[in-house]
Computed example of a mutant assay.
Amino acid sequence: MSGNRQTIDDSILEAAATWVARLQSDDATAIDRQAFERWLGEHPDHRTAYDELRALWSDLGEVPISEGRLGELQTQRRRRVGGFVGLCLAAGVAILSLATPYGDRWRADYYTGVGEVRRIALEDGTEVDLNTDTALVVRYEQARRTVRLLRGEAFFSVAKNPLRPFVVEDGALSATALGTRYSVGSVAVDQAAAVQVEEGRVEVEAAGQKAVLGAGEAATVDRQGRISLSKADVAAGTAWRDGKLVFSRRPLSDVLSTLERYRRGRILLVDEAAGSLEVSGIFDLRDTDDALRVLEASLPLRVIRLSDLMVVVQSR
C-alpha cells in the first residue's frame, strides 16, 4: 500500500486534503502543526498522500480564486455526499469530492454510472433512456404504474394504458403521462426539477399546484414548489439520448457544469468573467476532454489539467 497512489484509501486522501487546506490558512496554529506531524507519523501513506495533494496546490499558484468564489466552493463541498477522492486547490484550497451515489444505486431497479447513457425496456412496453448518473425505481400496481426517480434524468416513451396511468415522481414533482414522450429530472443537486414534453401531454403536480404541458413545453419546479412554464427546444435538451450535448448561447458556467456531469472529477471555474462567455455548439458527451480542448481553442480561456480528476478553467 505504501507509496502507491492507486491503493491509498480515500479516507487518507480526505484527511490529507484537509491538512493541506488547514495548514495553508492564515489561522493555522502551532497546535495544528503538532497534530499534523503526529498524523504524518502514523502511517507512510499519510506522507505520500499529503505530498501529492500539496503539489497540486502548488501547481495552482498562479490561479486566482476570489474570497467569494472560495466560499461558494466550500459550500458546494458541504453539499456533496457519498464516497470521496481528495484533491486540493489553490488560494485557500477547495476539496475535490466525487459524489458516488451508491445509496441510490443500491435502492434502484435501474441505474447508470457517470458518463453512461443507456436505454431500458420496462415490462409494460415503456422505453426509458437513462442519462448519466441516474437511478430509478419501478413499481407496478393495479391502478397505476409508478417510476421513482432517485437521481439524475430520464426520458420516457410511455406505453399507453388508460386503466393504469404512468406517473414519474422525483421528490419535487409528479408527472403523469397522458399518452406521451417526455423527460423528467434534475441535472444537478442545486437545480430545480424539470419536465420537458416531446409528444403528447403531461400533467405536472407540485405542492398542490397542477399544470398540463403539451409538446414543446417545459415546466420547472423550484425549491418552494412553484411551477414555472416555458417553451422548450426538447430535441436539444434531450440530445444526450443520441450521445450529444447541444448548447445555444449558453453561459460557459452552465456548459462546464453540464460537461462535469459526464466525467469523473471536477471542472473548476475560477473566473467569473469567463463564466459569462456565451457558448454555442454540439459536443460528444463521451469525450468531454475534446469539448474542453475546443472551448480553449475558440474562447479566451486557459484550461489547466492538474490530473485526470481535476481541471481548472480561467480567462486567458
Score class of each variant (00 low, 15 high):
Ala273Tyr: 00
Glu272Cys: 03
Gly237Tyr: 01
Thr258Ser: 00
Leu277Glu: 04
Val246Ser: 02
Pro251Leu: 04
Ser228Arg: 14
Phe283His: 10
Lys244Gln: 15
Pro251Arg: 04
Ser253Gly: 03
Phe247Gly: 00
Thr238Cys: 08
Leu252Trp: 10
Ala232Ile: 12
Leu269Glu: 12
Ser253Trp: 02
Asp242Gln: 15
Ala232Ser: 15
Leu269Trp: 06
Ala274Glu: 08
Ser248Thr: 15
Ser276Asn: 12
Leu259Tyr: 11
Ala273Ile: 09
Phe283Trp: 02
Phe247His: 01
Arg261Asp: 06
Glu260Asp: 11
Val279Tyr: 14
Thr238Asp: 14
Trp240Ser: 08
Ser280Leu: 11
Asp242Leu: 05
Val255Gln: 08
Leu268Ile: 15
Arg249Asp: 15
Ser257Trp: 01
Phe247Val: 02
Gly265Val: 03
Gly225Leu: 03
Phe283Glu: 07
Thr238His: 06
Asp233Asn: 15
Ala239Phe: 02
Leu259Asn: 03
Thr258Lys: 04
Ser257Asp: 10
Tyr262Ala: 06
Asp254Glu: 15
Thr238Asn: 15
Ala273Leu: 07
Ala236Val: 11
Val246Arg: 08
Phe247Lys: 09
Ser280His: 15
Ala239Tyr: 07
Arg261Met: 05
Leu256Phe: 02
Ala239Met: 05
Ala273Ser: 12
Ile267Ala: 05
Leu268Thr: 13
Lys231Phe: 03
Leu245Cys: 01
Leu245Val: 06
Arg241Asn: 00
Trp240Thr: 04
Leu268Ser: 14
Gly275Phe: 03
Trp240Cys: 08
Val255Asp: 06
Ser257Ile: 03
Ala236Gln: 13
Arg250Cys: 02
Ser248Ala: 11
Asp233Phe: 08
Gln224Ser: 15
Phe247Cys: 00
Gly237Cys: 03
Leu245Glu: 11
Glu278Ile: 00
Leu277Phe: 02
Val234Arg: 05
Arg266Pro: 04
Val255Pro: 04
Pro251Gln: 01
Leu252Met: 09
Arg249Thr: 07
Phe283Lys: 11
Ala273Arg: 12
Val279Phe: 09
Ser257Cys: 05
Leu268Asn: 07
Arg249Pro: 00
Lys231Met: 06
Arg250Gln: 14
Glu272Lys: 14
Leu245Gln: 04
Tyr262Gly: 05
Ala232Leu: 09
Thr258Leu: 03
Ser230Val: 05
Arg250Val: 11
Glu260Ala: 14
Gly237Ile: 01
